[in-house]
Nucleic acid binder design. Structure first.
Lengths: 216, 216
DNA sequence: CCAAAACTTGACTAAGTGGTCAAAATTGAA
DNA sequence: TTCAATTTTGACCACTTAGTCAAGTTTTGG
């Protein structure tokens, strides 16, 4: 579950109600602050303020800034991996990809902070998650690339490089979270209208599924 | 040229050789540091060190950290806009898009720092370039979206939402710069091989032009 | 060659920053 | 109720950071 193995087998910590509440509040506030200011730019003070407690109290729950960051990013990565792992080799390929893309777009819309946090981490050179990327993520991507290759061999989808297809899906779906300020600036208030998210999904799916060239 | 209008009509400053050299060295170093550490995370000291001069000397050329940042990001945005503006309404649509995508991928490869710098700025909420996004960039995108719409009406490309097409192109082309650590982690050393960039271009173009669904 | 302008530097300041510590306030089980 | 464990706090420390300043050194035009 954890990105890195726990150093020591921690005793079976049962958390009090206050522990649970405060740790959750901290994680939420930290996601917010880290995702906009980056790791170095974020301050414990601001996280504490947003979580509604003193800095000293926050440090009672998480012993250091890096600990908070680690917690939040692990949380994010796990949530982000799940729908990818759920791609079913035996499902209908187009339907599976459509579902995955839709879920990712929904997640981007629901929690753009998480998306930005991860983007930030990778852009910094992934000091914390590099090992995870090289091991667990790579293995999972290799596996799914194999699935896609088999779909291609069966003639069920067009012959495209599986890895770059995965990257393209990640790129497009995350773009709407990571660059939402830019998207808003260009599209104006229509991005706030209720159906907008569906419109994005439809447009992206149309491009990725059918391409730009006119079909005969 | 500038993102924001100059406050006062500056006297016709002719720059000495030393001015020119040092300002260029600073801009280069700043791009490097800002793009990996973010605005808040970057320090004048590190920029100065990388530029090979003392902090005090650097502040002789740029009066503040924000001034350096502003300079570098304006530079970046201008370079980034040029090939987009160059999309020719009278050219062959597929060829124009292919060319634009290829150029953007080449730029991402040549200067991933610039790409990351801009991504970082937008992810922070675009404090410096927001106005630019809402005015000049929006106008330019509106114009190019009109071009694409006319191509669609003429049946020369498939009917996709022009704005989302533009976003999709930006997303995919920037992904290889902004997430290159992740790409490297997953694809391994093959990303260093000479032909890799062409392979990326080919794969991305294939997906965007033809889509994933098998053509009859 | 020389003085003025341009350039460079080290010492310094004021405002944060992450983190410690001991003491106080609160909670909860017996 | 009681008292030990848990939670919360303010004072504090060592360090980093953006930016100033005055005093130097180098460059350049006459």
């Amino acid at each position: 579950m954890a990105l890195t193995r726990a150093k020591k087998a921690e005793a079976p910590k049962k958390r009090s109600r206050i522990q649970t509440e405060n740790r959750a509040a901290i994680a939420l506030a930290a996601l917010d602050v880290f995702s906009t200011d980056g790791y170095r730019g974020a301050t414990i003070d601001r996280i504490a303020e947003r979580a509604g407690m003193s800095k000293t109290n926050l440090l009672y729950y998480y012993p250091s800034k890096e600990d908070i960051y680690r917690q939040v990013i692990e949380q994010t990565v796990e949530a982000w991996l799940e729908p990818f792992a759920a791609i079913d080799p035996d499902g209908d390929p187009i339907e599976e990809l459509r579902r995955y893309i839709t879920i990712k777009l929904t997640m981007s819309d629901a929690s753009p902070e998480a998306s930005r946090l991860f983007a930030n981490e990778v852009q910094r050179g992934a000091p914390l998650v590099l090992e995870f990327l090289q091991t667990r993520l790579k293995a999972l991507v290799d596996e799914k690339a194999g699935v896609i290759r088999r779909w291609i061999d069966a003639g069920k989808i067009a012959p495209v490089d599986p890895y770059h297809l995965i990257f393209t899906i990640w790129a497009t779906t995350q773009h709407y979270a990571d660059f939402d300020v830019q998207v808003n600036a260009i599209l104006g208030k229509q991005t706030k209208r209720p159906g907008f998210n569906d419109q994005v999904a439809h447009a992206v799916l149309s491009i990725l599924l059918n391409g730009i060239k006119p079909r005969a």
